[in-house]
Design a protein around this nucleic acid. Structure first.
Lengths: 347, 347
DNA sequence: AGATTGTTGTGGAACGTTCCACAACTGTTT
DNA sequence: AAACAGTTGTGGAACGTTCCACAACAATCT
């Protein structure tokens, strides 16, 4: 018991943050006047406002966010839940959200799942516990039923593809089918006919890319069965592809990969095997991440307007917070970026 | 006026978060009992605790962090201020801090400077406004005098090198001199004598690496003036280096770069110029970032125990929060990681 | 039986802020 | 002169929680 009272005493001692009372006392006005002054509201004269602000400055007063949000019933906090900060796609979306948040006087709190579904959910809980007014989720790993439950309590916008629509949850995504189509048609335009697809995921976005790949291939080359490798045993699939090419027996001359990460692995494996890129194999990635320009050859890829998607997500979240109740789903056109990893097939 | 009362009414209506009062009422006990139950404190019998918890669960009750921290005078929030999330070094340090924070029941709030000194300071202000109990700063871009001022109000630990020690601020850093020494001695051990240093920064860590490079070189080859390029006009410096090598006139046969990013640029330029790596040029980076294994040849680099540094930083921060007042500076040994970008010089 | 100790629970006072009704002025209009 | 309107300022009641002194009761010890 003694220790408890001591700790309170400690708190009250010297180092204590100055409160609105301290400022009021020092300035010789009421706490209400101080409150008005620091919030720049009318109700105090210009002269007293300046006086109060100066006193506040001298005391190093900084208003207590919790007390404020406690009485106002809002926190001005927005959460963003990320699957993987290491991925520049996620990072750029975040930057977009952040810029839009700052512009709207909202503070962004980052929750980071670190590629772990369990941790991701824990982080979402944390964000909610912090009292965020809405959450932008940049991940397709949160289970839909969980999403739906949370969505009933707090506005939610998902950036990316979900397995299916979830009532009460908005989404903004790029049209993966369109991006995949551009990639494959680029390869076809270069003269490739034996084109393979390499994927490392069975998540919705990946499946849409894969689906569009198959469709374009079937439509263009009706009598060829398009080769799709992965997502399981991706490493083995890459090895097998390289082996095929070395044998030259009707091997693919081009590969469209699910994303840049897979593309980078493929590039590495090809170079390790002594293949010449892009002469012996054309490669197209997806995401236009920062590695594209580090690799040699520089990677042809599909770019999504990531920052824009982030901005849109925050915009939709604000609408939700303001009271919109009908669901909204926005899709954005991706765009092929041609670099050095694609060329016409040999011969 | 009408609108104001309405807004309060709205807040009180249906969608309102259940409070401790609601749970108390529903469970037929006092709010104090609920408070004790949810915090797992003694003062309620096991039976009533279970009953209360079940009612709370049913109502979807979640305690309001703000109200709690308002009365407790502590928030359980720790801030981390990052210079650049894109850098895997920063990311890994963050992961270490995060793990340690979770283990100590603290919540981590990320502030992201996005490579902009002004934004960085703004983010630090934001963190303080949120009421964090301490901040881990992963950046050397915060001006020392600012650091000192903030450090008087809230515990601060810097991960990395500062221009000079700042009273009241702890640091944890890797011994850059030691890492640079290992890198250069590795190259010397391979038989290189003409070794250049390429740097893209004049910040403390970079300067220490550079200094150690020069010292080892001067000690080993007293009559050679060690070649240092950058940090200004880094791109031109890289071009010049490549040009030197193509001319073969006493050009460097190895380069120790300030970090992996610079090394990646150099590798790209060399490959674009048609050089063979590592035969014509050995390259050593610094940081062991994720690109190292994506590049071909895979990059020899210096690894810092990043996660460990993050853990240590949080540990020191907790000591500070608990009351330690004397400054503490920890340094950690880095370790060379040999990959494929270094080899004996030709001939 | 009375005193002591322990357990379980309660109600009210904080915490630092905003909101709101109202008070005290000072002008301006009827 | 009275009524009205506008400006400037005030004190008290919230907000949702924890803390704390204390009450009621049971069990144990003199």
């Amino acid at each position: 018991m003694a220790s408890l009272t001591t700790s309170v005493a400690q708190r009250r001692r010297a180092g204590r943050r100055p409160t609105i009372h301290d400022v009021a006392e020092a300035a010789g006005v009421s706490k209400s006047a101080v409150s008005l002054a620091i919030r720049n509201q009318r109700g105090v004269s210009e002269a007293t406002r300046e006086h109060i602000l100066q006193v506040a400055q001298e005391l190093g007063y900084r208003s207590n966010v919790w007390a404020r949000s406690l009485v106002q019933g809002r926190t001005g906090l927005i959460g963003i839940l990320l699957q993987d900060l290491g991925n520049s796609y996620h990072r750029d979306v975040t930057a977009g959200v952040e810029d839009a948040a700052v512009a709207n006087d909202l503070r962004l709190v980052i929750g980071h799942g670190r590629r772990d579904a369990k941790r991701l959910q824990g982080e979402l809980d944390s964000l909610l516990a912090l009292g965020v007014e809405g959450v932008v989720i940049v991940s397709s790993w949160v289970p839909p039923q969980y999403l739906e439950r949370i969505g009933r309590r707090v506005p939610l916008v998902v950036v990316g593809r979900l397995p299916h629509r979830v009532p009460g949850v908005d989404t903004v995504a790029n049209r993966d089918e369109e991006g995949a189509k551009q990639a494959v048609e680029h390869l076809i335009g270069l003269g490739h006919t034996r084109i393979a697809h390499l994927t490392g995921s069975a998540r919705p976005a990946a499946m849409h890319r894969r689906g569009a790949f198959s469709e374009v291939m079937r439509r263009t080359f009706p009598d060829v069965d398009p080769q799709v490798e992965g997502p399981e045993q991706l490493e083995a699939a890459i090895k097998y592809l390289v082996f095929q090419i070395q044998q030259e027996k009707g091997a693919p001359t081009a590969v469209f990969t699910q994303n840049d990460r897979v593309a980078a692995d493929l590039v590495g494996a090809c170079l390790d095997a002594g293949l010449n890129l892009p002469e012996q194999l054309s490669i197209v990635g997806y995401d236009n991440s920062s590695v594209c320009q580090m690799l040699r050859p520089q990677l042809t890829t599909v770019d999504q307007p990531r920052a824009r998607m982030g901005e849109l997500a925050l915009e939709m979240l604000r609408e939700r917070i303001a009271g919109r109740t009908d669901d909204k789903h926005i899709t954005i056109a991706p765009k092929l970026v041609v670099r050095d990893s694609t060329a016409a097939p040999r011969g």
